[in-house]
């Protein structure tokens, strides 16, 4: 208990060092506790499916557990874990796209979206902010993944340009231009949806 309290006061980098050096499972658990929600939020906004997102974050944590030694202390732990989660989320999107291509009824997804659309403005729906949130999520899913990822990291997760550059493996200039393009596209989509 005392160890736990002591560990909780440590930074992410110190915790992973502890986990790497002494294989302290408590340090790992504290890191999982710290990052499960931000990663869930990031992956959900990127993939748009809650069940899949839970699986991806679980896999991220397992990967972190298995590959703890591949982390290098010069990098920030947050960027490292976001990179793992981002890669797994991208793989999931690729797998889905492949499944859609080989699927005989390609327009299933489209149909389900249409059904959801009708329920957006039902009178018995919850608060206005919830409806807005669903609209934004729908618009986000229409933005290209390369732009979507950086917009989520910047505007939803609140990462700095430098951190995003590290997570995505891009230069800061590219990150900025992609964020700009992603925002422009998202704004256009939202304007269109609001008009409808």
């Amino acid at each position: 208990m005392a160890l736990n309290k002591q560990l909780e006061s440590l930074t992410d980098e110190e915790l992973i060092k502890e986990f790497q050096d002494n294989n302290t499972l408590e340090a790992y658990e504290i890191l999982v506790k710290r990052y499960k929600d931000p990663l869930m939020n990031f992956v959900f906004r990127f993939v748009g499916d809650r069940d899949v997102c839970t699986d991806i974050v679980q896999d991220t944590m397992i990967k972190f557990y298995l590959n703890k030694d591949s982390y290098r202390s010069f990098a920030k732990f947050s960027t490292w874990i976001y990179t793992i989660a981002g890669n797994l989320a991208k793989n999931e999107l690729k797998r889905r796209r492949r499944r859609t291509i080989f699927s005989l009824n390609n327009d299933d997804e489209e149909k389900s979206i249409q059904v959801e659309d009708k329920s957006f403005f039902a009178p018995d729906r919850a608060a206005d902010s919830e409806i807005k949130g669903e609209i934004i999520q729908k618009a986000l899913m229409k933005v290209k993944p390369v732009y979507r990822e950086v917009v989520i990291l910047r505007d939803i997760q609140g990462l700095s340009y430098e951190e995003i550059a590290e997570v995505s493996g891009l230069s800061i200039g590219t990150v900025k231009s992609r964020i700009n393009r992603g925002r422009t596209h998202l704004q256009k989509l939202l304007e269109k949806i609001y008009r409808e």
Partner: peptide
């Protein structure tokens, strides 16, 4: 985007 509800595990 910042005010979007946070998804929790």
């Amino acid at each position: 985007l910042k005010n979007l509800s946070r998804i929790k595990a």
